[in-house]
């Protein structure tokens, strides 16, 4: 065991220096959300459940054409989720409202990736295959992806799906926010262009927030007084307003804190500039040095100690 005193103090010096800087740097977590992203406002009171958005999405993203039931009513019998063959699906919910004939009034809700402002999936992705773009789109780069599916674990909306039946080159599949379209001037996401009732409104997120707020204030009683996605999970590019509570249409109750904040804080305070491993290394080195010194008189340094390790 060759550990010189000089060597040891050098290491310790670095470690202490790092240790003092590191936590300070990591403590101030900064949102990495783009300043003026696009968004899409989903007004559930307007959606008529025609599922044209599903069709359009499949078309512009070259996915299989969605199942067309003989009548829309049968397709809505099961609750569907976006999967590897559909980036978006519309579900029907009966939330207890009835009309004057006592017929239950359905609420239709489209689901897709929310394009979170500080996305859990982006923070989680081991290789950074997922990124939050300036446009607001959370993009997936298949060339980096290794298929660990941690993004799927992380996403609070349970959105990313996986091509489980592709043995060698499976992809994570989720709404792209039609990046290729919206990044062009005047481009629109496929689903929004087709929506016959403009239940989907595409625009700058800030504009949409104002607009949503206006709808809420101008139609008191029509809407639940809440813009889903304004704050949820730190804010999302897709926003929802609704006449029925959001939990009833399977939009999860989420904290306002961005999902990655806690884990990134912990990670960074522990590991920024690798201060903690270096400190630990130094500490253990010191202990080892100490114990060996103490034992030296008894045991001459030999090849044996090393071999036994």
């Amino acid at each position: 065991m060759q550990l010189s005193r000089r060597h040891f103090f050098k290491i310790m010096g670095v470690a202490t220096a790092t240790a003092t800087v590191a936590p300070a740097a990591a403590d101030t977590w900064q949102s990495k959300s783009p300043p003026d992203p696009f968004g899409c406002l989903v007004d559930l009171t307007r959606c008529v459940g025609c599922r044209k958005c599903e069709e359009a999405c499949a078309e512009v993203n070259h996915l299989p054409t969605p199942e067309r039931a003989a009548c829309q009513c049968t397709i809505f019998e099961k609750k569907r989720r976006p999967d590897d063959k559909a980036y978006t699906v519309v579900n029907r919910y009966f939330t207890g409202t009835v009309d004057e004939n006592d017929t239950p009034v359905p609420t239709f809700a489209k689901v897709q990736c929310m394009h979170c402002q500080d996305p859990a999936c982006v923070s989680a992705c081991i290789v950074g295959a997922l990124t939050k773009d300036e446009t607001g789109a959370v993009r997936y780069n298949v060339d980096k992806c290794i298929g660990c599916r941690y993004c799927m674990v992380a996403c609070p909306f349970e959105i990313p799906a996986y091509e489980y039946f592709d043995p060698v080159t499976p992809r994570v599949m989720k709404c792209t926010f039609c990046y290729d379209r919206i990044s062009k001037d005047g481009g629109l996401p496929g689903c929004a262009t087709i929506c016959p009732t403009e239940a989907l409104t595409f625009g700058k997120r800030n504009t949409l927030l104002n607009m949503a707020q206006k709808r809420l204030t101008q139609n008191p009683g029509k809407y639940i007084d809440h813009i889903y996605g304004e704050k949820e999970a730190g804010g999302t590019s897709w926003l929802y307003i609704s006449a029925v509570p959001f939990e009833t249409v399977n939009l999860p109750v989420l904290p306002d804190k961005p999902m990655p904040k806690l884990s990134e804080n912990i990670q960074h305070s522990l590991f920024s500039y690798l201060w903690s491993p270096i400190a630990l290394f130094s500490l253990l080195g010191a202990i080892m040095f100490g114990t060996h010194k103490a034992q030296k008189p008894k045991e001459t340094p030999s090849q044996k100690g090393g071999r036994n390790a």
Partner: peptide
């Protein structure tokens, strides 16, 4: 046309008909 950024709340013709 829908999503007119100058008149965001002004819905497009198709949506106007449908709504």
């Amino acid at each position: 046309d829908a999503f007119n950024s100058e008149h965001p709340e002004r819905i497009g013709l198709k949506a106007a008909y449908h709504q």
